[in-house]
Design a protein around this nucleic acid. Sequence first.
DNA 1: TATGAATGAGGGTTCATTCAT
DNA 2: CATGAATGAACCCTCATTCAT
Lengths: 229, 229, 229, 229
Amino acid sequence: MSSRTTARRHRRAPSAPKTLDVPRKLPRQERAQATVEAILRATAHILRTKGWDECNTNAVAKRAGVSIGSLYQYFPSKEALIAALAERHAQEGLKILVESVAAARAREVPLSFEATVFHYISAMVTLHSHDPELHRVLVEQVPRLPGGQEVIRRTSSHAASLVRAWLDTQREHLRIVDLDVATYMLVTAVEAIQHLQVVHRPEQLSREVLVTELTHLVLGYLGVTRAGR
Amino acid sequence: MSSRTTARRHRRAPSAPKTLDVPRKLPRQERAQATVEAILRATAHILRTKGWDECNTNAVAKRAGVSIGSLYQYFPSKEALIAALAERHAQEGLKILVESVAAARAREVPLSFEATVFHYISAMVTLHSHDPELHRVLVEQVPRLPGGQEVIRRTSSHAASLVRAWLDTQREHLRIVDLDVATYMLVTAVEAIQHLQVVHRPEQLSREVLVTELTHLVLGYLGVTRAGR
Amino acid sequence: MSSRTTARRHRRAPSAPKTLDVPRKLPRQERAQATVEAILRATAHILRTKGWDECNTNAVAKRAGVSIGSLYQYFPSKEALIAALAERHAQEGLKILVESVAAARAREVPLSFEATVFHYISAMVTLHSHDPELHRVLVEQVPRLPGGQEVIRRTSSHAASLVRAWLDTQREHLRIVDLDVATYMLVTAVEAIQHLQVVHRPEQLSREVLVTELTHLVLGYLGVTRAGR
Amino acid sequence: MSSRTTARRHRRAPSAPKTLDVPRKLPRQERAQATVEAILRATAHILRTKGWDECNTNAVAKRAGVSIGSLYQYFPSKEALIAALAERHAQEGLKILVESVAAARAREVPLSFEATVFHYISAMVTLHSHDPELHRVLVEQVPRLPGGQEVIRRTSSHAASLVRAWLDTQREHLRIVDLDVATYMLVTAVEAIQHLQVVHRPEQLSREVLVTELTHLVLGYLGVTRAGR
DNA sequence: TATGAATGAGGGTTCATTCAT
DNA sequence: CATGAATGAACCCTCATTCAT
């Protein structure tokens, strides 16, 4: 009574293999840009405040102040809409990281190894304290979207490459480890702790304590000797 | 298999208190027990193989080989059904942990601190390698269920109390830390890394490496001196 | 996609034309009598307190403390169950009326015409103030049952015949009217006012005022001269 | 006529405030107006011919020639749909009454008291002979709808106020009575007799006889002296 | 006979998506 | 291009009724 295929079906007759990236139509005019912007904002708002289940395209269009027809003019499906939002969210996050790295490099007096870790961890925590509800919803639900895994993978590997590159320059301070594994462990641990942080919402852990402890975690894992504490 | 007189049905009723706890009716006969079992198994199967979105009550009933009516005889709502499965899954997990702790304590020659950590981490990894797909779906979606947070909180605090109690006996080996915070960090880190492990499915990380690295992570965080490595 | 016949279908293959009167099986033993009694009581209770829509056979059986199977042993269908209750309710009502008539006739000093009307109206009001909720539900819903009209018709004509017979003996006090029409008007008016009384539940109309006004209504309609009022 | 991508639907949502008042969306285009009209007409038709139990939203949509989705675009629930129909039916009825009152007042030679009563009763009977089946169903079932009592109360009090106002101007012709009580008795009696008229469908009572007898009933109750008959 | 587990047609409602205007 | 009315497959859940034990 139902097709048991892998759960995704096409919308149009025999055409496009449905990727989630590009909007159906590149908005060239300002008006269109504003519309797209309004739709994405509305989507974010609803995901944030009402959650995944309440986030339907009609509600998004209404909140965005555009017609449902216009929404579909710019996003070929609900999934594409959310994927676009996820993409943008990921880019914003990456930007914070990249800027943090740039800031560290730009210092006249270079930071110590420990201070650098602290610096990066701070950036990560800042990153996640920005719109945590939206972040939570996206992290939980995007993997299920067709192509969602891809968005995540792309983002993580970008972040990982930054970390990996930096670790490479710091080999001398580390106990000998496989840098790829170490990178994976660090990126995952920091990311995941923050994720659960948002899910569980434990009030008892202040930002300061969190940053400190994550720094310990990372330094301890990398085998840096911590003198006098 | 039937054709019955029907007259009026289905009024909306004042929409019962909707809690997720008790099954609507306790199965007293063997047959009923088997039905409940079949339903839970079917739910797990579908969540595992088709995912959350495809897991609807009709599909569950069909796969369980029972009528939709039977499903609702034992579970007052779809949410209650999934919550029951989550509860059971959580209990199974806790059991593995508790047994692991008991095994460690029962040894004639006590394990070293490091070996104990290794022992526990192994148990955790074992735990998560059992039905990882189901675990992933539940971890991601149960929080959204009404009362889902509660199930999670109960389970986590049980697990945390085990860890916390053990840490308490090992104070001498640790750098001085707030044990509550340390417990949170450890439980979260280990849990979360495994979670992402399942989400990302990175094939490159073998079970052995994972256990080793997690042990490093934990020992490093706790500040244990690792001699000769 | 659906059969547009007159809304009733049979339960069994090509058998019984479904009348609502007799229980499937005449209860000869005490135990059976008690069961039937419990079921009817439970039905009445649920209709009274939860209303028509909440009154389903499973709930009735549970409240009656018998299995659903037993319910169907004594009542071939939900409709038959309710019809039986309606029948019993009607009989109880008729009994009150009949007793009221007997009481009036048994008096040594006969009541005046006016007093007799007052006497009967009082009986009617008493009748309706007994279990008004159940009465309301039955009056509203029974007509829709197959055969429900019949129950009502039978009861009404019985009541009407009592009124009609009495009017016949009182011809001299009445303006000349068609006694059949008059009977219909009176029975209907008194019945209906009480019905709406229960539906609207206007608190402002006390039993005394109601009896008085209904008496006026009847006397006025029958054309009895009311001296000095 | 379509086959669309579907993914996840239908979560239970916190089950909105459920009031019966406003249509979910005001139809702004002509087409929408026509749709609403068709839906209401279809509802009336089905209630009239098939009765309350057969009146389900799918049947209504089908008969209206619109999709079930369209129905829910304009009526948030089945109950709201029926309430809307009831409201409209009530308004139509009130309109007839108001016009009848206006017609009586507009006469150059005012009607006598008796003639006025006759005039009004005629209007009432006319009112009820218009779509009596629909009227019956609504009167019986609307009270059970959430908010249904309110619709009824509003309508009745409007009608009552018309009667009450008129009685007030005719005090001299009446035996002294509490006008509020009298109003209630009259409105109820007339309404209720007609109601039972529809329920019982006694063929023997022609419209003329009914009007005459109701007039007697009212005049008798109000204590008007009827000379020469 | 009594029990209660099982059945499944039926019905209310949602929401992604289309398309005529 | 924008609009928003319309669509309908899909889904959750109820309850009258049956039948194996």
